[in-house]
Design a protein around this nucleic acid. Structure first.
Lengths: 222, 222
DNA sequence: GCAAACATGATTGTATACAATCGCTAATAC
DNA sequence: GTATTAGCGATTGTATACAATCATGTTTGC
C-alpha cells in the first residue's frame, strides 16, 4: 500500500472503530472514492485489505460491509487474545527496556487521569493502545500484527454487544498489569492480563438474546 | 476473492511452496496475467493478498518478489508456531471428534508409508498438512487462519535454510503427537509438539554463515 | 577519461470505460 | 390474486489506456 491508500485505509478503519460506520453498513466504492477525490481502484484495494483483517466483509457482486461479528466469532477473538496476550505479557516482562516501561507507564497514567473526561469510544481506543503497546514489547512482530487486528475487531464487538459505558476497573487493571511487568513478575502479569480480558468479555451482553438486525425484513417481521 | 482469483492465488502459492518460484524472484504482473489469460487486475489482487500473508513482498513501483525471510524473521515464525501449536494441540486433545481422530490417523499412516518414496518437497507439504489438521481440530478458526500462513512461510524458510533432505524423525514425531491426542493427554501432546518444532528449527542452517545473496555485489564482493 | 544529465524501455500505479451481476419493480400469464 | 418473468437501476468485476516511476545505457560537457 502506498501513501494514498494508507491514508484512506486509516480513515476508514478509524471510522469503523469510532462507530461512525456501524456494523452491516455498506461501503459503496464510488461514494468513498468521491469522498477522497480518487478513483475506485485504490478504494477497492483498501476494502480488500480491510476484509483480510476482517473489519469488513466483502460479498461477491454485492459489496463491502462493516463487519458484524456473531457471538461465536466474538468468543473466538477473545480466546485468541487470551492466548496471544498471555504470552506477549510474559515476553514483555523479560524483554522490555526501561524506555519502553516508561512509555507504558505514561500511557497508563494518561488513561487514569482522563478516563472520565473523554468519551466512551475514545476511552476504549486508549485501552486498546495499551494492549498493543505490550504486544510491541514482546519482541516478535507477529504479536503486534495479530493483536492489531484482534483488538480492532474487539472495538466492533464492543460496539455491538457492549453496554455503552466503560468499566472503571479497566484502567485499574491496566495499572496492575503495568506494575507486574515493571516487577518482571511473569506469572502475576499473565494472571492479571487473563483476568482483565475475562472481565471485558464477561461484561458483554451475550446472553440477553440481543438481536442484531441484519436485514430490513428482520427488523419489520420479527 | 472470486473463483478466478482463487485459482490464480492457489497456483502461485503452490509454485512458491514447491520452490518453482524461488525466493527473491520477481513476479511480473503482465507475465502472470498472460499465463492465466486474464488482465493484470486480478493478478494484482492476488499478489496483494499474498503480500498480506507475507509469501511475497511488494516494493512500491518496483514489483512483487517471492519472500526471502531473514534468519530473524524465520525465528519469529517458529516462535509463533510454538505458541499457537502448543495451544492448538491441547485444544485438539479436548475437542477433537472420533471422526477427526480417524482422519488424522489416516494422514500419519500415509506419511509413514510414503515418506521415502515421494520427493522432498512433497514430503514437507504432507508434514505441513498434518500440522494444519491439528489447527483445524482446535475449535477456533484463528488457529487455522494464522497457522496456514505460518506453515506456508515455513516451506519457504526450509527452502532457504534447509538441508534438502527430510528428517526421518518427522513422521515418527507426528505419530507421537497423534498418539498423545488420541490418549487425550494434553501435557504429553504439548511436549512432543514443542520438541518436534524445535527439532525442525534446529535442523536449519542458521549458524553456518549461510549467505543469501540479495544483490550481485554481495556475491562478487564478499 | 569520467561524471553528470538525459533519454529509453520496462514495470508498476491510476483512472476510466465497459461487462456482469444483483435486487427491485412492474408487467404478464394463468 | 398470485406467481413467474422481464426490464431497469445501481453496484461491483474486468480490461485497458494512460501516467508515474525506476533502472539501464547513452550522450554530453569538461
Amino acid at each position: 500500500m502506498n501513501t494514498k491508500e494508507i491514508e484512506i485505509y486509516k480513515k476508514i478503519k478509524q471510522a469503523i472503530i469510532q462507530q461512525k460506520l456501524r456494523p452491516n453498513m455498506q461501503l459503496v466504492e464510488k461514494e468513498i472514492a468521491e469522498a477522497f477525490g480518487v478513483s475506485r481502484t485504490p478504494v477497492r484495494n483498501v476494502l480488500r485489505r480491510l476484509s483480510y483483517e476482517r473489519l469488513v466483509k466483502i460479498i461477491e457482486n454485492k459489496g463491502a460491509f462493516v463487519t458484524c461479528s456473531s457471538i461465536e466469532e466474538a468468543k473466538e477473538v477473545f480466546e485468541m487474545r487470551r492466548i496471544l496476550e498471555s504470552r506477549a505479557v510474559r515476553n514483555a516482562c523479560r524483554l522490555s527496556s526501561e524506555e519502553q516501561l516508561r512509555e507504558l507507564e505514561k500511557m497508563v497514567k494518561e488513561e487514569l487521569s482522563t478516563y472520565q473526561h473523554v468519551d466512551y469510544v475514545e476511552a476504549i481506543q486508549m485501552s486498546g493502545e495499551f494492549h498493543l503497546k505490550i504486544a510491541e514489547m514482546a519482541g516478535n512482530s507477529y504479536f503486534y500484527r495479530y493483536l492489531e487486528d484482534l483488538i480492532s475487531l474487539t472495538y466492533v464487538i464492543i460496539s455491538i454487544y457492549g453496554r455503552g459505558q466503560e468499566e472503571k476497573s479497566t484502567c485499574l487493571h491496566h495499572l496492575d498489569i503495568f506494575n507486574a511487568i515493571k516487577k518482571r513478575d511473569e506469572d502475576l502479569a499473565e494472571k492479571v492480563t487473563l483476568e482483565h480480558l475475562n472481565d471485558i468479555e464477561d461484561n458483554l451482553r451475550f446472553h440477553e438474546n440481543l438481536q442484531i438486525p441484519t436485514t430490513l425484513s428482520e427488523i419489520f417481521h420479527p
